[in-house]
Design a protein around this nucleic acid. Structure first.
Length: 893
RNA sequence: GCGGGGGUAGCAAAGCCUGGUCAAAUGCGCAGGACUUAAGAUCCUGUCCCUUAGUGGGUUCGGGGGUUCGAAUCCCCUCCCCCGCACCA
């Protein structure tokens, strides 16, 4: 391989310098404005990172660099989500230790990330597999235990046979597969596991969403759905035996208490404990067991997909509907979910589609209690449930009531009678955190025959994951590691056994962003002062795929620490940015698909700045984009042009007015667009200004310096180099961001410059056409433009009225203006914006001035006399027209 | 079904919030030209259609309708694509 690219050499030079001078290391600095910019920390995969990952990091890096230049104390850290299965599986295969794989991968990640020029404060690096970090996972767990938020229970759980562990609800895909093995369905197992009571925070997690103004609606909606709050009513019914004796109670949850008079049966989920209880010793016992078996064989998706055929079975029991006194049958059915509500459903077949289908299949009665206003429902002839609003019928005292009102009224009535109670229900479930795997944070619990479940005392933390382990098969080697398992009960000192399950790795990522604020603290989880200074995260960047997992968990943890009094914020991140995916050859770039572009390739060929620039330029960072090697070439061409221009063509002359005007509007646009993370637009402004300067073949020092600053967040290495070439000794990274001066932006000047350019081109064209290469005199015919006519109208109208709309109308009535309405209207906003008369006049005056300037410039350029006459000066105009074919605006003499 | 995001010239992608300066930025691609022995690189010009030295005219922003002096932009209807949730009682 030959010499690497010049940009690459520059990149290496500056990366080394940044590292040597430690310029990106930060400290909490109370009183100084801060900005916390964070990308979701990665799992350090052995395959390293490709440009798709790089895109994500560059989005944050650009912002971090921009904020630094705006005087913010910027916290921009990186770390590794380094517990987890891939490393463990690799270790199993190689009969080695996951730590070895993990740390090797991390080393590689760091090397790659540094090569991207990311301005992280590397001293804050955290790795969740280090005992210094996971000690505080354990500490947090103990705190939760203390507060009653961690508990152990026997329950049906999701089990992935490939991962050989249980999974949280959030880790099961909608297709009911494991998130890591998307073609393997998860199984259901009944296990005794540790849970975190995230449901205690359901309401806060829901309400907090309204405060997250910097989150997309998409993610907030997903979280709302996931939390799944609904208002309803709990109703309980007396259960009777065949003789009519009351034997038990059953409670149900409904959002439709207005339909209680239409209940004709009740179904329980198969998991409901009452099923076994009630059928015990009856003729239904075996049948029920078989039915449950049958249902459990099916996957959750088979059971719960909408439209699936519903199956059920009568339980041989009845209940009394207290509203009507009717005796109705109790069933079990596969469509009832044990997880939701109370695990039992009061069935109203006339007004619920699922109940309707079930009733039809098993010939259960259908009773209409809500009637549409304009026609009559006939229970026998219904082909589907009636779920629209209507008027109550067959509902005793509530007959005739609008069903919406009846929801409230009937609930009141039920509460009065003691039959039911208003409740709020959530779909959110508690978080199952036990994992039957080795490579995770040990759960700090000891089981003692005498004392039961005993937490490891805080002083004994961390419970360390042993290094001398042997993998045999896929099983967690901790279960056979005697020195780990065998311990003494912290309570009574007798021999006891340690919990061998480890925690879900999402625990690690639930608070890592807090630890960054105080990463090396070994006396407590973090220092509150430091954390209160840095939090909340001002800009969080990561994929939408975490919407209902990590992004809920980290909010939960934040609220928990807040309740412990450790920090003050309610929400971890006020702004969340979801980046788009990078594609190659039409599909998402990924190692497993084999369609990756590596940062190394890009660096070698073009320098990494080119890659950064290209990715930020092609599309808005939140949109998916396609990698195109030709596109990268284009960016490279531009950067070379940019680099040459600023290295060689910087002049010492004072900045010209027009250049200054363009410079200031460029500063304005770039700044606004970076702020809004519309980097693509910011870059385009930079390109346009650069191209403008390039055509003029010179650039003032003022523009040069501003331009280098403006581009520096995107192409930091090249920018440092140019900054140095411009004679600066300090890094550009902390230079003041350029400010634009609105007064220097002069649209009028820009417009007139364009006009001058056109005129110049006209003259050249005419010269060519007439074979004249030098004219002594050039006469320009400038149209007595509609502008003046319009300005007059505006002036007049303004004198009469102050309503811009009137002006427009009046202008349209003027035949002269109307004929050129399209062009004429272009000027209207300018003139009417502030409805102020002097401005209209001023703009008129200015035009004359500039025409004069134009004349001078043209005279200089063409070395001749230039005469400007109004087009209406018809003599001269006629002469011009006759001198050349067509209508002529330029006459050469 | 519910919720979210989209459909713009050969391709990618701006513009839409705040209607007029929009035949619509920018990049890629393509065509022509300059330079060169040549290729590459670089630079210039063009790139919806017709016409022009410049101007100008015509038809465009998924489809249809409306509001307006004026619509890619606002409103209504409709078609298509993507993504989340989904028998949640």
């Amino acid at each position: 391989m030959g010499d690497s690219n010049i940009f690459n050499q520059i990149a290496l030079k500056w990366q080394k310098r940044w590292e040597d001078t430690k310029i990106f290391e930060v400290k909490a600095y109370p009183g100084k404005k801060k900005f916390y910019c964070l990308e979701m920390y990665p799992y350090p995969s052995a395959s390293g990172l490709h440009m798709g990952h790089a895109r994500n990091y560059v989005i944050g890096d650009v912002l971090a660099r921009y904020k630094r230049m705006n005087g913010y104390n910027v916290l921009y850290p990186m770390g590794y989500d380094s517990f987890g299965l891939p490393a463990e599986n690799a270790a199993i295969q190689a009969k080695s230790h996951p730590k070895i794989f993990t740390e090797k991968a991390i080393t590689n990640f760091i090397r790659q990330q540094k090569s991207l020029g990311l301005s992280y404060d590397w001293t804050r690096k955290i790795m969740s597999h280090s005992p210094e970090y996971y000690k505080w996972d354990q500490w947090t767990f103990l705190k939760m235990l203390e507060k009653g938020l961690a508990y152990k229970k026997q329950s049906l759980v999701n089990w992935c046979s490939k991962c050989n562990t249980v999974l949280a609800n959030e880790q099961v895909t909608p297709k009911n597969t494991c998130w890591r093995h998307t073609n393997l369905e998860v199984e259901s197992k009944e296990l005794n596991q540790w849970y975190l009571k995230i449901t205690d925070y359901a309401e806060q997690l829901l309400e907090g969403l309204d405060k997250l103004y910097g989150w997309t609606e998409e993610v907030k909606t997903m979280q709302r759905n996931w939390i799944g709050k609904s208002h309803g009513t709990k109703l309980w019914f007396d259960v009777i035996d065949e003789k009519g004796q009351k034997t038990d109670k059953i409670s149900t949850y409904t959002t439709r208490p207005d339909t209680v008079y239409g209940i004709t049966y009740l179904v329980l989920a198969v998991e409901h404990p009452k099923v076994i209880e009630w059928t015990k010793g009856t003729e239904y016992e075996q049948k029920a067991k078989d039915f449950i078996q049958e249902v459990k064989k099916k996957s959750i998706i088979e059971r719960t997909a909408e439209g699936k055929e519903k199956n059920g079975m009568f339980l041989g029991k009845y209940f009394i509907n207290p509203f009507t006194g009717d005796k109705c049958p109790l069933w079990i059915a596969d469509y009832a979910l044990y997880d939701y509500g109370t695990g039992a459903v009061m069935a109203v077949p006339a007004h619920d589609q699922r109940d309707f289908e079930f009733a039809k299949k098993y010939n259960l009665p259908i009773k209409v209690v809500i009637s549409p206003t304009s026609w009559e429902l006939n229970a026998e002839r219904m082909s589907r449930a009636y779920i629209d609003p209507g008027i109550l019928v067959e509902s005793q005292d509530f007959n005739g009531m609008n069903n919406k009102d009846a929801i409230d009224e009937i609930t009141n009535y039920a509460e009065q009678k003691g039959w039911g109670k208003r409740t709020v229900n959530y779909k959110l479930r508690d978080w199952l955190i036990s994992r039957q795997r080795f490579w995770g944070c040990p759960i700090p619990i000891v089981y003692c025959d005498a004392c039961g479940i005993v937490p490891v005392p805080e002083k004994d933390l961390p419970v360390i994951l042993p290094e001398d382990i042997k993998f045999e098969g896929a099983e967690n080697p901790l279960t056979k590691h005697e020195p780990f398992i065998n311990t003494k009960c912290p309570n009574c000192g007798k021999p006891a056994k340690r919990e061998t399950d480890t925690m879900d790795t999402f625990i690690d990522s639930s608070w890592y962003f807090i630890r960054y604020c105080d990463p090396a603290n070994n006396t407590k989880i973090f220092d509150s002062n430091k954390v209160n200074y840095w939090l909340p995260i001002d800009q969080y960047i990561g994929g939408t795929e975490h919407a209902t997992g990590h992004l809920i968990y980290f909010r939960f943890f934040t609220k928990f620490y807040r309740d412990l009094g450790l920090l003050k914020v309610d929400e971890p991140a006020v702004r969340l940015y979801n980046q788009g995916m990078l594609h190659l050859n039409g599909s998402v770039m990924s190692k497993s698909k084999g369609n990756v572009v590596l940062p190394e390739e890009v660096s070698e060929k073009y320098g990494i700045d080119t890659g950064r620039f290209y990715m930020m330029f092609v599309a808005s960072p939140d949109k998916d984009m396609e990698w195109s090697s030709q596109g990268v070439e284009g960016s490279y061409r531009f950067l070379k042009k940019f680099f040459d221009l600023l290295s060689e063509k910087v002049s010492s002359e004072a900045i010209e007015k027009r250049e200054e005007s363009k410079l200031h509007s460029t500063i304005k646009q770039v700044t606004e667009n970076i702020k809004a993370i519309k980097y693509n637009k910011a870059i385009i402004s930079i390109m346009q200004f650069t191209n403008y300067l390039h055509n003029r073949n010179s650039i003032s020092k003022q523009s040069a310096e501003a331009l280098v600053k403006l581009i520096s967040p995107f192409t930091p290495h090249i920018s440092e180099e140019l900054w140095e070439k411009l004679g600066h000794k300090q890094t550009i990274s902390f230079e003041n961001w350029p400010l634009h001066d609105e007064n220097k932006i002069d649209a009028e000047t820009d417009y007139l410059e364009e006009m001058l350019d056109n005129t110049r081109n006209d003259i050249i064209s005419v010269m060519k056409l007439t074979n004249i290469n030098k004219a002594n005199k050039i006469t320009l015919f400038v149209a007595e433009e509609w502008k003046y006519a319009l300005a007059n109208i505006v002036k007049q109208t303004l004198a009469e009225t102050r309503n811009p709309k009137d002006i427009i109308t009046k202008a349209m009535q003027d035949p002269q203006v109307k004929s050129k309405s399209q062009q004429a209207m272009k000027l209207i906003p300018k003139l009417t914006k502030e409805s102020n008369l002097p401005k209209a006049v001023a703009s008129q005056r200015k035009e004359h001035q500039v025409l004069n300037d134009a004349r001078k410039l043209l005279e200089k350029e063409f070395k001749c006399t230039v005469v400007i006459v109004k087009e209406q000066d018809s003599n001269r105009h006629a002469k011009a027209v006759s001198a050349l074919p067509g209508k002529c605006g330029v006459l050469l003499e």
